[in-house]
């Protein structure tokens, strides 16, 4: 059996804000094998980006992180600061969301890529680094000469591609894409996605793709996990999860996107009533029950359902799933 690139075991992350504990991630297990692709979906504040930050230990110092985060077998939570820095970008790299703000505005984009290379391989000569920077830019479809430009001279899509090239600089085993297409318009979004998919396939990267846009994940990821209130509420092969979601929240998320070719769904996009739960005051029982369209009144407010089998290679956390009515 090959070792997983990333394995989260019972991960808990608790922020401390103004003296109050804010549980953002509440017991998440995830495994991504080599060359595997996993999509992580959920609405804002469900804890999905917190997971990205936790993997590279980028969260604020006062944050409590418990459980295990195994990157290629070693628990990053137990590493010395120096080792953590060495693991960052070489084992796992992040494609950040902010195409606008993730690049340093007063440094040439090529220098920002070169900095990552030089930080982890101090023996490289200037010339080989420059050549490598050009090569990386060409791999994401940008001419090598654009390394001399500043972020504001590039369009949003180009900047996002620079961020992808930057993430590839140290040939990581795992790429974490944290909402990489959110700020882009649809055409550019499609371009960036195809760049990302090609690279994942060609370079043999494992990919953890985080987004609130379930439709993006269907085509680019093999497996799909849906998060709600700091937990995974459904996980399975992406086609199955997207087309026949078992958890009512996953169903709401999937049907929030109109089906192409079905005009009826365009005119009646089914949203979800209510707001995401306040992490400092989560509902009792199943955290989704106040918004759930199929709530069972005498069960859900008191029963905190954990993930249970829901079909071939699938799991969901809902009382309606499993047992005899599982089909």
């Amino acid at each position: 059996m090959t070792e997983a690139v990333l394995e989260l075991r019972d991960l808990h992350v608790t922020y401390r804000a103004a003296g109050v504990d804010v549980p953002a991630v509440r017991g998440v297990d995830l495994t991504i094998g080599p060359r595997d692709t996993l999509g992580l979906a959920g609405e804002s504040g469900c804890g999905k980006s917190t997971i990205a930050g936790a993997v590279l230990r980028l969260l604020p110092r006062a944050t409590r992180v418990e459980g295990e985060i195994l990157l290629e077998g070693q628990d990053v939570l137990k590493l010395r600061p120096g080792k953590v820095r060495a693991v960052r970008w070489t084992t796992a790299a992040i494609v950040f969301q902010g195409a606008l703000h993730s690049l340093n505005p007063v440094q040439r984009v090529g220098d920002q890529i070169a900095e990552a290379i030089e930080t982890h391989a101090r023996t490289r000569s200037r010339r080989t680094t420059t050549a490598r920077v050009g090569e990386l830019l060409e791999r994401v479809g940008l001419p090598a000469r654009r390394r001399r430009e500043y972020p504001h001279q590039l369009s949003g899509g180009q900047r996002q591609r620079v961020l992808i090239a930057l993430a590839l600089a140290c040939e990581p085993a795992l790429l974490i894409a944290d909402e990489p297409t959110t700020a882009l318009d649809v055409m550019v979004q499609a371009q960036v996605l195809s760049v990302l998919e090609d690279l994942q396939r060609d370079a043999g990267l494992a990919l953890l793709f985080i987004t609130h846009d379930l439709s993006v994940l269907r085509s680019s990821c093999r497996r799909l996990a849906v998060m709600y209130a700091g937990r995974i509420v459904e996980e399975g092969p992406s086609g199955a999860v997207f087309d026949e979601p078992r958890h009512p929240y996953a169903r709401a998320l999937a049907s929030a996107f109109p089906t192409i070719g079905d005009p009826a769904s365009r005119y009646r996009p089914s949203g979800l009533a209510g707001d995401p739960p306040d992490p400092t005051a989560l509902p009792t029982g199943c955290p989704f029950h106040p918004r759930c369209p199929v709530v069972v009144d005498d069960v859900c407010p008191s029963l905190d359902v954990r993930l249970r089998p829901a079909g071939p290679a699938r799991e969901a956390a809902c009382v309606h799933v499993g047992g005899d009515d599982d089909g």
Binding site: L56, R88, W89, A93, H101, S102, L103, N104, T119, L166
Partner: peptide
């Protein structure tokens, strides 16, 4: 955000 990225790079 670019400071977060710089930290993530391992600086």
């Amino acid at each position: 955000d670019y400071l977060q990225l710089a930290r993530a790079k391992g600086l």
